[in-house]
């Protein structure tokens, strides 16, 4: 089977980022680009799926050409090849443009299953998986904790606010994977050395037949979140336990 895993190169999250331009996008010039740490879970889920069924994983990404280095990590983990859509016209692209471009690359490559993260660590829009499903006209199952496949029926345990949900879906489909659900493998040393000779195909929006019509979504303003308050100290006057239970209930932990 062919599993597509969508991955993103993002500015190294361990270095404080900076918002630039009228669209308030993250500065990508002059910073190190790395594979989004959240995507490692998708790559792991994709590799596990392909290994259980026989098949291969293809990474699909959109981003600047110099970020191809970040794809190498996924290739070192075991993906067979990478496709990088790189086009100056795509700088600052909104979610719908991004999804349109990714969908075109995925359609051209062909797929049985597309795996994405639930959201990227830098942009956090969290809508790409559903947009991809609409554009590719396949079902999307989001927030997956685990995936298993029998024949062409996929069982997905979904994380929801109130618990887990078992979803059943037929291939082809899109699954978004929650960060932390699996343990992304370390690439082997052989994998790292071999990743150099694996193909990374670069293409433009035009070569995929996508006409760029400009963003439909505008980020009007960005404000920093308020610094976290000091928290509440409950002194035990006999009612502390009840107060803590009440607090935990309001934040839906209980």
């Amino acid at each position: 089977m062919k599993v597509i895993v969508c991955v993103k190169q993002i500015p190294d999250p361990s270095v404080p980022g900076e918002l630039v331009g009228p669209a308030h996008t993250l500065q990508r010039e002059g910073v190190t680009l790395v594979l989004d740490p959240g995507d490692e879970f998708g790559v792991e889920a994709g590799l596990a799926l392909a290994e259980s069924q026989g098949g291969e994983v293809v990474l699909v990404s959109m981003g600047p050409e110099r970020g191809a280095d970040a794809l190498r990590k996924g290739l070192a983990m075991g993906a067979a090849k990478g496709i990088l859509v790189s086009d100056p016209g795509l700088a600052g692209a909104d979610a719908l443009t991004t999804a349109t471009v990714l969908a075109a690359a995925i359609r051209r490559e062909g797929f049985d299953c597309v795996i994405t993260a639930t959201e990227s660590t830098d942009g956090y829009s969290g809508v790409i998986p559903q947009m991809l499903a609409a554009l590719l006209e396949v079902p999307a199952v989001t927030f997956a904790k685990s995936i298993s496949l029998q024949d062409s029926t996929m069982r997905v345990k979904r994380q929801t606010e109130s618990g887990t949900e078992d979803a059943v879906v037929n291939l082809p489909c899109i699954v978004s994977v929650t960060a932390g659900v699996n343990e992304p493998r370390y690439p082997t040393l052989k994998g790292i050395l071999g990743a150099k000779s694996k193909p990374i195909e670069t293409c433009t929006a035009e070569s995929l037949g996508v006409a760029l019509t400009g963003s439909t979504q505008q980020v009007a303003d960005v404000t920093p979140i308020a610094a976290r308050g000091a928290g509440e100290i409950i002194t035990d006057d006999g009612s502390a336990a009840a107060k803590i239970v009440e607090f935990l209930t309001t934040v839906k932990v209980l």
Binding site: D69, R72, K73, A76, Y186, P187, I192, L193, K196
Partner: peptide
């Protein structure tokens, strides 16, 4: 080289 960087990166995480 980028390969040496990657190998060191893996060893560092490990």
């Amino acid at each position: 080289t980028s390969t040496q960087e990657d190998l060191r990166g893996l060893a560092r995480s490990f």
